[in-house]
């Protein structure tokens, strides 16, 4: 599968060409864009929404929006930034809509469902799978306003400036939000560790 992905990645020139063609309504060019970015967008949606099923639906919807909005996109702005903005805004809308109908129960643990598919890498050697699952669960329990900047920073690897632009707030606030997110995560991880130790004794 890794090979197929390699093929799906687009060089900047290919990407711009595909965008221009897609803007003129070329379906195969849009398909190339889709293949090039579906993984990233799904990742954004997954980390934002915390459920693979929701993320799957949201990803499709994001691409519907992208297709409709592509005409309004100009090559002058970075495509990834624009794309992430569409995805992030869509997920924020989604979370807000869902806020009213808070999940009462869920049959599968969303964090676990996807974590298993993770391919082991250098990071995985230092951070155990268990820990990763725990962190994902904590992230999902965190308020969206703290989670979203973290996802944009650590998953999308966006700079503070890009995040600030996307979320329509200033750079300083982005820094503070990310800091608070990290602090909250550290606090909860410590609390969990303490609980486990107490349970053991």
């Amino acid at each position: 599968m890794a090979k197929a992905e390699e093929q799906a990645m687009l060089s900047p020139a290919e990407r711009d060409e595909a965008i221009q063609k897609a803007q003129r309504g070329d379906a195969s060019a849009f398909a190339a864009l889709y293949r090039g970015y579906v993984r990233r967008i799904f990742g954004v949606c997954y980390h934002m929404l915390g459920s693979p099923a929701d993320a799957e639906d949201a990803t499709s919807e994001v691409f519907v929006k992208v297709r409709a909005g592509l005409a309004g996109y100009s090559l002058a702005q970075p495509f990834e930034g624009w794309l992430y903005r569409v995805a992030v805004n869509h997920c924020v809308d989604w979370l807000r809509r869902r806020k009213g109908e808070r999940m009462v129960f869920s049959d599968t643990d969303p964090a676990e469902a996807v974590a298993k598919d993770e391919s082991p890498g250098a990071l995985a050697e230092m951070v155990t799978e268990e820990e990763t699952t725990a962190v994902r669960r904590i992230l999902q329990e965190m308020p969206a306003r703290l989670r979203i900047p973290l996802v944009m920073r650590f998953y999308n690897e966006m700079s503070y400036d890009e995040i600030a632009r996307t979320l329509d707030m200033n750079r300083r606030t982005v820094g503070v939000m990310i800091f608070r997110g990290k602090r909250e995560l550290a606090r909860r991880l410590r609390a969990q560790a303490l609980q486990r130790r107490q349970a053991a004794t």
Partner: peptide, 22 residues
């Protein structure tokens, strides 16, 4: 904390349904 975040917010497996054509 950074390390954990980077690991947790890593790539995730793409559902097969999304891998199909758009």
């Amino acid at each position: 904390v950074h390390l954990r975040l980077a690991a947790a917010l890593g790539e995730v497996a793409l559902p097969a349904s999304l891998l199909a054509a758009p």
